[in-house]
Write a protein that binds this DNA or RNA. Structure first.
Length: 454
RNA sequence: GGUGACGUGGCGGAAUGGUUACGCAGCGGAUUGCAAAUCCGUCUAUCCCGGUUCGAUUCCGGGCGUCACCUCCA
């Protein structure tokens, strides 16, 4: 079955055919590194990681190139460095490390290239020069601005009507702008703010130009997929598209635009003032990263997602079950279940894919060995699950908390002895004692196993 | 004010012009010394009002409601 993807540009589901099957190119907007990644940052990473895995399967791992940037020059970073009174590089290095660790915990593969904005200043300057030369940008008052009326198609990607937007605009217009909609490509820096020398003086790039410059540098003028959150469609992606298409020529840039839906927490927009702000780091204290991953995938990527703790508990229960079924089972690519794969190939229908996984789990639970292999293959090769053993999974503890497994085993042995002596009162007492510590015992045919209650 | 998305059973969540997914929870059973785990069985749904149709949850119109964007945001 052919891969179909919803293209935000055309607002339809289309058959995906790469420009060059030997080099399938995907660019996803990565984080601005100034603080811990929140669960809203994790959604596009997990969604596009799932797509990345599927593309690698379809075209070969060596024929897919996935670029996800790190934006390490931004006024939010500058503000944070000032607050903490540390060098900017400290903030960006620390936050980048945290981001990598958190995304790895979610079983997200690292991208093939991870360009940094500060490493591409020269490319940004070159692109700005090209925009000026082509009449799409102008220098004014130390700034360089993109002239929006120079691009007739502006607003098409995000479905905005420029005139209507201006009618409802609440922003003050800077005096140096020729048009209210014009946006900054380059802006001046003072001594306290990071900057680089440029034809327009000492300064730093505007928000959108880094993605245009980096996608060009690593993927070329035209590439296959551009992804990110729907909140970025305006102004970020609209402006990226404007810059790139005007600098490189009409018709260049991404063939497919993909946007994941918004993320809410407990039914509301996540924000610090609402008290429902969740970092990935905080959530990894409640459940293993794979559970968070499956939770993210349990809603179709284009739908709004409502994050709840109850949802986390539910996927944890599901994975407890699946892990038991695939324990000791090995699978190879031949076991990849066609049903799960077909669901993913239909615009990444992960909820349907998970439903097909449940069907396999049902069959595996009845003792079908091929179903167990397919379940494992579906998790391992498609959804990015089963990265640990069943024991590791069932014994999982939040980072920093270590269980004394030897002590638990000693209690289990004592209980086995009591049971052999038919002293059930003592056996039950030991079991209750362990339950009070969050340890659940399971008497099976091969002996007594235990798991951590969640 | 402008724009967009969404409204499916207790909860999560797909699909579909007609045959009422799937999971979690609940309930009943098997199993177990009792549990847990596992297996079997099982109840509950398509926001409201019109229209098109032999038939709509699905298409069209209206209404109500929720969320978001238009300013930093994944």
């Amino acid at each position: 079955m052919a891969l179909k993807l919803y293209n935000s540009k055309t607002r339809t589901k289309q058959d995906f055919a790469p420009i060059d099957p030997a080099r399938v190119r995907m660019y996803v907007c990565g984080p601005t590194v100034y603080d811990f990644a929140h669960i809203g940052n994790a959604r596009p990473v997990v969604v596009f990681d799932t797509l990345y895995r599927l593309l690698r399967l379809n075209y070969g791992a060596d024929h897919v190139i996935y670029a996800r940037n790190i934006t390490d020059v931004d006024d939010k970073i500058n503000a944070r460095a000032r607050e903490e009174n540390v060098p900017i590089a400290d903030i960006t290095a620390r936050t980048t490390d945290q981001f990598h660790a958190d995304m790895a915990a979610l079983n997200a593969l690292p991208p093939d290239v991870e360009p940094r904005a500060t490493g591409h200043i020269a490319q940004m300057i070159a692109m700005i020069e090209s925009l000026i030369a082509r009449g799409h940008a102008y220098a004014a008052d130390g700034h360089v601005l993109f002239h929006v009326p120079s691009m007739p198609d502006y607003g098409r990607l995000s479905g905005r009507n420029v005139k209507e937007m201006l009618a409802g605009a609440r922003v003050e217009v800077a005096p140096y702008k020729r048009d209210e909609m014009d946006f900054v490509l380059w802006k001046p820096s003072d001594d306290q703010t990071p900057g680089w020398n440029s034809p327009w003086g000492y300064g730093r790039p505007g928000w959108h130009i880094e993605c245009s410059a980096m996608s060009l540098a690593h993927l070329g003028e035209t590439f296959d997929i551009h992804g990110g959150g729907i909140d970025l469609i305006f102004p970020h992606h609209e402006n990226e598209l404007a810059q790139s298409a005007c600098a490189n020529g009409p018709g260049t840039f991404a063939k497919f635009w993909m946007h994941n839906g918004y993320l809410m927490v407990d039914g509301k927009k996540m924000s610090k003032s609402e008290g429902n702000f969740r970092t990935v780091r905080q959530l990894l204290d409640k459940a293993p990263g794979e559970a968070l991953r499956l939770q993210i995938l349990s809603t179709h990527y284009r739908q709004p997602f409502d994050w709840t703790d109850a949802g986390t508990r539910e996927v944890k229960t599901v994975l407890d079950h699946w892990y038991r079924l695939v324990d000791g089972v090995t699978a190879d690519a031949a076991d990849i279940p066609a049903t799960v794969r077909a669901a993913l190939e239909d615009d990444l229908n992960t909820p349907l894919a998970i439903a097909e996984m449940h069907r396999l789990a049902h069959a595996a639970g009845q003792g079908a060995p091929d179903a167990a292999r397919q379940l494992r293959a579906g998790g391992e090769f498609l959804l990015g699950l089963f990265g640990m053993t069943a024991d590791q999974w069932l014994h999982w503890q939040p980072p920093g908390k270590a269980l004394d497994e030897a002590a638990i085993q000693a209690r289990i042995d004592a209980r086995i002895a009591a049971r052999k002596a038919k002293n059930f009162k003592e056996a039950d007492r030991i079991r209750d004692e362990l339950v009070a510590q969050g340890i659940q015992l399971e008497d099976g045919p091969t002996g007594t196993l235990w798991k951590v209650l969640s």
